[in-house]
């Protein structure tokens, strides 16, 4: 362990990770089994002659009426499938990122009309002196910056009390210029590329 690697981390089961619950408004799906017993739609219901220019069947389940704002679960889904640089295991399974440690807040609270928002992600390294905490932080930062619209500010930090040199790492992660400089480093680039390969 002296090299700052954790060879035997705790792993969460995929079915225990937070996921988006089935929407209540989703079509009536009471199926308890994977087999579909639903009786076939009547043969006469398929009528291409009767459709309007935007088909009603698509319209009902798929309209813009319901707004789906970006929420913490969505942020989680973006980063939880990234893999740890030293294990072929996702950050979600390793609990490096977790849903309660993600927050979305208005960037300028005094101006409610502004749509600028800040995403804060707290990272929990698998061990106190994890040598790769900075790399993981950078990876998460890169993933979020390329995946979120420009009105979002990204703030990635080490969770308090989980890392021996948290302050130093945080300083590096918060420093735009140091982040940009680090991303020019080819070794880091390949590390981050590898982390992002498993993104779903």
């Amino acid at each position: 362990m002296e090299d700052g690697k954790n060879a035997n981390p705790l792993i969460l089961n995929p079915s225990d990770l937070p996921t988006r619950r089935r929407r209540a408004s989703a079509r009536q799906d009471h199926s308890a089994l994977d087999v579909s017993l639903a009786y076939p739609a009547p043969s006469f219901s398929n009528d291409p002659f009767a459709r309007s220019s935007s088909p009603s069947s698509i319209e009902e389940s798929d309209s813009d009426a319901e707004d789906e704002p970006i929420d913490t679960q969505e942020i989680y889904d973006l980063i939880a499938t990234m893999s740890d640089p030293e294990h072929p295991i996702t950050l979600g399974s390793l609990a490096v990122v977790s849903l309660p440690d993600i927050a979305i807040t208005p960037t300028i609270p005094s101006r409610p009309a502004s749509n600028l928002q800040t995403v804060t992600v707290l990272i929990t390294p698998t061990i106190q002196h994890c040598s790769l905490a900075t790399v993981i932080g950078l990876g998460v930062r890169v993933r979020l910056e390329e995946s979120l619209p420009p009105r979002f500010r990204v703030d990635v930090r080490i969770k308090e009390g989980t890392h021996s040199t948290a302050d130093e790492v945080n300083k590096q992660l918060a420093d735009k210029e140091r982040v940009a400089a680090a991303l020019w480093n080819p070794t880091l680039q390949s590390f981050i590329k590898k982390m992002l390969e498993t993104c779903e």
Binding site: H30, S31, A32, L33, V35, L37
Partner: peptide
């Protein structure tokens, strides 16, 4: 619905 599916299965 689940009962019918169960029975069929």
């Amino acid at each position: 619905q689940p009962v019918l599916e169960g029975l069929a299965e």
